[in-house]
Design a binder for these strands. Structure first.
Lengths: 155, 155
DNA sequence: GACAATTAAGTTGTGCACAACTTACCTGTC
DNA sequence: GACAGGTAAGTTGTGCACAACTTAATTGTC
């Protein structure tokens, strides 16, 4: 009995608690948010990372794989197969650059461009589900941005 | 030329911008945080989700697979293979319950218990890397908690 | 006590993430 | 123009996430 109590106290002092971890809060919130997006994106036939790539392309295209990776923080190991899937969905086209044969330019197809219209209402649905005010969401985004930048600097 | 300008304006109006998305901010911050944890956890031989499972077990064990899943928001499809890997690392033991043969109780091994000591300093390292004050981290965790709860309710 | 409905855990298949590596191409330096 | 060093994209392998399904045990309900 005494042993159990001692062991318990040692654990409580040394072991970090799950509910104290900002990291777990981030991980949970991120998965909960993509879970809200999932059924909406399913209507478009996209996964969440595919949607992110399309967002970047809707802003400006064509883009190289490396550029997309810098924008999203993903490497070619993630993007290459993802882009192949987007191509097989008929949303993008991969073209080897003539000037620099190493580069692959990702172009939107007409279908890929059209999808941006259907995607227009998506962010509002998350905002509605979030249960936070526009101001709180804004502040959250700002804090997360600072956090991400600091964590990248720490790497 | 006129066509291009019209198309551009339509895109800008309809297409959501990447940098406006709270969801992307969450996704980036979460990946950046686990990236900071990764080299630290590598010293313990754990991945980040494995570390989360160990955190829950350090608080209280044994636990069933379903209980772990509720605590972490993960299903058996994720946990079953993860727990097998933890077992093959010698950190946990899976025992079929005698009372209810459907249940598998996850026990810590002595090695699994010992690991909590080594893990003690880990959260501090993230806090140091985060570049936010203790108060800001606290507020962030609270906001994320509310957000996650609201998103789960919206599902 | 038979048996439909429920439940716990596991399996299968798809799609990220990311490390480590390969391939093909380009660039600077001599 | 040769060639070392660097760069862009792709490949391979591991480990999550998660949906859909299976298996085996338990719990009502009659």
């Amino acid at each position: 009995m005494h042993n159990l109590i001692v062991r318990y106290r040692i654990l409580m002092i040394d072991a970090p608690r799950l509910d104290r971890q900002v990291c777990f809060a981030l991980y949970s919130a991120s998965r909960a948010a993509t879970a809200v997006y999932r059924p909406v994106l399913e209507e478009l036939g996209l996964t969440y990372p595919q949607y992110l790539v399309m967002l970047v392309l809707w802003e400006n295209e064509p883009r190289g794989v490396k550029e997309l990776g810098e924008e999203l923080g993903l490497d070619s190991g993630t993007l290459s197969p993802l882009l192949k899937r987007l191509e097989s969905l008929g949303l993008v086209e991969r073209r080897r650059s003539g000037e620099d044969e190493r580069r692959v330019a990702i172009h939107l197809t007409p279908a890929g461009r059209d999808l941006s219209g259907k995607a227009g209402t998506i962010p509002q649905r998350l905002a509605d589900a979030a249960g936070l005010s526009a101001g709180e969401l804004d502040q959250l985004r700002a804090t997360l941005g600072r956090l991400t930048a600091a964590l990248h600097n720490a790497q």
